[in-house]
Amino acid sequence: MLDFDAVVKRYGPITAVDGLTLQVRRGEVLGLLGPNGAGKSTTVNIAVGLVRPDCGRVSVAGRDPANPGVRGSIGIAPQALSLYMELTGRENVAFFGRIQGLRGKHLADRVGWALDFVGLTDRQSDRAGTYSGGMKRRLNLAVALVHDPPLLLLDEPTVGVDPQSRNAIFDNIKALHADGRTIVYTTHYMEEAQRLCNRVAIIDHGRLLALDTVESLIKTHGGDTVVTAETDGGPVRVQTGDPLRELRRLQDTCGLRQFHVQRPDLEQVFLNLTGRQLRD
């Protein structure tokens, strides 16, 4: 659905995207996971044709996204809230629907659906500027959906939202995925990537470090499980591929009082791949 082939983008001395090769499959949720400044937003902007790569090629369903006609098949929810705060929620969605070429009853139907989907029907007549942070994020998503695009690019869609709105957005994304849409989800929260994405691409300094399912990434790059225990002989910290067997051994030899098992996660994967924390 979305292909990057050896894409390079530089801004002066800074290489924002460094030889990125990546295929997003139709109907999957692909997470772009990386710290701030890793090149995720630049990748999204290249995908939507806003930024021309210096080298390489990008295609959406085999076509150049710089072509305006191709961009109609993409819905983008940028990281910055791209809304007119002086317009109402409905006016915002309707305006962008019109820009996408929707007219008349079809436009009205799609606007109503998008507002209902994100749970803003009750507040549709209020100005966007009066919405809470979470509601603005949901409206941002509604605008991306109004023209019913098969490919969605969601750039950090949960930044600055309350837990309730965050869960609502997660439910929206799951529903969209279930509906068969292709979603590229950029985030620097590993929990989100783990919870929502079929596959995760780990990016740092514009380079693709790893790409696979969460389980495979952890298995390949996460390392062993860490068992931390308090025993009769004092504190113990052990890395092991079989935590149950290790706990049984500690119980038998040292007298286990309490323990904590830390399974490897994407944070550990990132640490092992880059030598630093995801939020550094």
């Binding site: 961009r71 109609g72 993409i74 705060m85 996408q100 070429g101």
Partner: peptide
């Protein structure tokens, strides 16, 4: 600065 220009530029208009 608000990002709406970016969003407009991603629409199928030149």
């Amino acid at each position: 600065s608000g990002g709406t220009l970016l969003r407009l530029q991603t629409a199928p208009v030149s």
